[in-house]
């Protein structure tokens, strides 16, 4: 494995595609260098111990290697897809619970108009738009959205922690999501 063998792709998405197509170890190395410390940092913010966060970051990257062929760059950016892989592994390995979810191959699954224009906000420029939308939230709305991801507790507990009525938390969340969806151009 020489580092000059393949030119580094500009996009993180392409690294996952390279892994899927040719089991490209150099691509994995670059992806690991970028994402493993972020996954670890994310988990530590969630309250995971440093040691468990390190292990889970490793496991997530290993899962990325195994599941790379399931990654569809038209549907999700690399960071969004890796977020979902880490999320599911954390529930499975740390909480030791199931995370029931729909199965698109299930005959009872009701397909949508995919990939429809309205929900196709998964490209890189859409990630830029999303960041802009997050940046434009009021401090109160941004706090609720951040806590929804990092507090690892139900919104009733978030409300209690902030000393707010649950209805206030819900309405801030609803307004925040409406603003984000409006920016992304999806259905309200």
């Amino acid at each position: 494995m020489t580092k000059t063998e393949t030119a580094p792709p500009a996009q993180l998405n392409d690294l996952i595609v390279l892994i899927a197509q040719s089991r490209d170890r150099r691509a994995f190395e670059m992806l690991f260098a970028h994402f493993a410390p972020r996954i670890k940092g994310y988990l530590i913010r969630l309250g995971t111990s440093v040691a468990a966060a390190e292990d889970l970051a490793q496991e997530t990257m290993f899962a990325v290697w195994r599941k790379a062929s399931l990654f569809d760059p038209a549907r999700a950016s690399a960071s969004t897809w890796i977020f979902t892989v880490a999320r599911n592994l954390r529930i499975d390995l740390l909480r030791r619970e199931r995370r029931p979810d729909f199965d698109p191959n299930d005959p009872a699954f009701v397909p949508g108009e995919e990939p429809a224009a309205d929900a196709r906000m998964m490209r890189d420029d859409d990630d830029v738009n999303l960041r802009a939308a997050l940046g434009k939230l009021s401090p109160e709305q941004a706090e609720i959205v951040q806590m929804s991801f990092f507090a690892d507790k139900p919104h009733s507990a978030i409300a209690a922690e902030l000393g707010l009525p649950l209805g206030t938390v819900k309405s801030r969340l609803r307004l925040a999501m409406a603003r984000i969806r409006a920016t992304l151009g999806s259905a309200p």
Binding site: S77, S79, F83, M121, L134, I180, S186
Partner: peptide, 11 residues
């Protein structure tokens, strides 16, 4: 999907 995208941005 949009919410997962927020998770991706936070990551």
């Amino acid at each position: 999907g949009a919410m997962e995208q927020i998770g991706g941005a936070l990551l």
